[in-house]
Design a protein around this nucleic acid. Structure first.
Lengths: 343, 343
DNA sequence: ATCACAACTGCAAGCGCTTCCAAAGTATAC
DNA sequence: GTATACTTTGGAAGCGCTTGCAGTTGTGAT
């Protein structure tokens, strides 16, 4: 493999000049730059990543920690992050820490302390204050998406607010028998979102003077199949059937719709369903939802980090609330006539 | 940040010994090892990734190139690769090259030639012979999953064989009016699979003396929503309706089932549907399918690479045919009575 | 022509480790 | 007790770049 020395020799320049020419930093005459580039091209030379990183202290590499890559939100964020990073010439080191907590810690130690990454994006992961301080101490900016990160910069949507909006939408249509499907407790550890959305739902119900019936509070694991199973219990069980379901994610809303169909329930005539996400499948199901642009959130996270790395601005612990968009389709409507109180 | 020197000093050892103690290579007395580890722990020291890589030439980093992270097959492979790599103490650098070919080339140059990775896993990407040679020339083992990689090691399923098996399953049930939903031409560039599965389908039909009707050959983009749209055309259009659909992926099979339901067709009584994949959602839809363990394929790819890197064995251009499993559920049955020729 | 200043360029000192080599210590064999 | 082989250690030379510093050259102003 050719080294920068070979390039320098061939171009009739010093190693230093070639380095500057190739990296674009520092002053180099056009002539030298062209020579260096030509020589590099002829030799098929590319700067060694590790040598550059070691010498310069910059990695051009961002770590992305996600709990899963299968669920819609996460894979969407990954896509957004990946595309933005690639455009900026950065590498993405992916840490899928699905399988438990021990691994998470070793991951953090390993790639943060070993300074392989310039920055970290943590998705729906609840880092401890200590972990965050550790990161900030070694000047590794960190931004969180979809989870509270005390002391760090975060990007999030107004979970409580949109949950309220979703519930209000149903209430305004005339529903009073509204069920809520929230995320599983299993996820609550790292993922406070279920609680937040649930809180918003309860608030909206309370505000409207409606009862939050415990038997209509169900949970699932954020997947279609998990929600399908839960919804079958809810809709096919012995308890009175709600006229509307607010699911904390589109995937769960879709699972609910599938379960409803199994029971011959027509959506929205017999059952209204609303989700949160903006999942690509929403259109197929005519799903009313609140669109959170997950790709966009990933992209924004990257832009924020890079601004802090390349530029001067340190965004600090700035919290950005990402905008959402209410998308009304055909899965929500007025409740069935026989369930509306006659006037 | 403490360096290895500080650790050496604190432990009363030389830098060399500490390096050996911490990396586990070479002979170090138990006493020295413990001292070194203790000192490192006290100082919160971790070896610098780049310095180690530069000095040793080993990266402990594998590049994974995928065309997407959203579609089931790819995200499953990513999970399998990620978990196996993490267990082995390797990093995963993810390259999502969805947006076109130019990017792909810059990616290859960038991370292959810059030797940031020890090996490459390419999923459903068709690298040119030149690209592969380039990789092998610099001793970067490469394994392909789900795509032909001339000269490189690959892991793949018997696409033609399972397509034949799927078609035969329908034929044996008594179907003769069988449609096939294949992958879009847009993917054929990098992804020869659609053609291969289609070939298997045609062969099975021919072998059974059945006609492959062009109007029943439709395509979609491998997504549920894409397949849904195509299936609506197929099932709701003016052409005679088939009694069975063989979709080249589970996601497309599911899209087809959803479309069928829209038209009031009961699966499997009015329409049989079979897919390929082993998608988690298959169970919800009672989908008959051929399970290819995508996670397992990813894991196997990693194990193969690591064997080549750590051990002595160079697997060379060994092609592994990954086993698949026929999963019969409730989406396939005998054709509707009125369409079976009376005897 | 002279001077001040900016734009280039090259030298060489690292960046923080790994590993070759030789020396020292220790166990085993005769 | 000595020779032989193996284990353990430290010194020091890199790995392949980047960058501070100082020297060289070119420019416009005087």
């Amino acid at each position: 493999m050719p080294g920068i020395k070979d390039v320098a020799e061939r171009a009739g320049l010093s190693v230093a000049t070639v380095s500057r020419a190739l990296s674009g930093k520092g002053n180099v005459s056009t002539r030298s730059r062209e020579r260096a580039q030509a020589a590099a091209a002829e030799l098929g030379f590319v700067l060694s990543y590790h040598a550059s990183s070691l010498a310069s202290g910059r990695n051009h590499n961002v770590g992305l920690v996600v709990p899963s890559v299968h669920r819609w939100f996460f894979s969407s964020v990954v896509e957004g992050v990946s595309a933005t990073l690639l455009d900026a010439g950065y590498d993405l080191t992916l840490y899928n820490v699905s399988e438990g907590q021990e691994r998470r810690h070793s991951v953090l130690n390993d790639f943060l302390l070993r300074k392989r990454v310039d920055a970290v994006i943590a998705v729906s992961l609840e880092l401890s204050e200590a972990e965050i301080q550790q990161l900030l101490a070694i000047h590794r900016p960190i931004v969180g998406i979809g989870g509270p990160l005390p002391g760090a910069s975060t990007i999030r949507i107004d979970d409580s607010g949109i949950a309220q909006a979703a519930a209000r939408h149903l209430i305004q249509l005339g529903h009073s028998k509204i069920a809520h499907m929230t995320g599983d407790a299993a996820y609550e550890k790292d993922f406070r979102l279920p609680g937040t959305r649930q809180g918003g739902f309860k608030k909206a119900m309370k505000d409207a003077g409606l009862a939050v019936r415990p038997e209509w509070q169900v949970s699932a694991d954020f997947t279609i199949q998990g929600a399908y199973a839960s919804a079958r219990q809810l809709l096919g069980g012995p308890v009175e059937r709600p006229t509307a379901v607010f699911a904390a994610s589109d995937e769960m809303a879709i699972g609910t719709i599938l379960a409803a169909r199994d029971f011959g329930l027509r959506v929205p005539y017999d059952l209204s369903v609303i989700g949160i996400d903006g999942h690509e499948l929403g259109e197929v199901f005519g799903l009313t939802t609140i669109d959170q642009d997950a790709r966009g959130q990933g992209a924004l996270a990257v832009r924020r980090l890079l601004a802090g790395l390349d530029g001067v601005g340190d965004p600090g612990a700035a919290d950005a609330e990402f905008p959402t968009r209410f998308v009304i389709r055909s899965s929500t409507a007025v409740p069935p006539v026989d369930s509306v109180p006659l006037r």
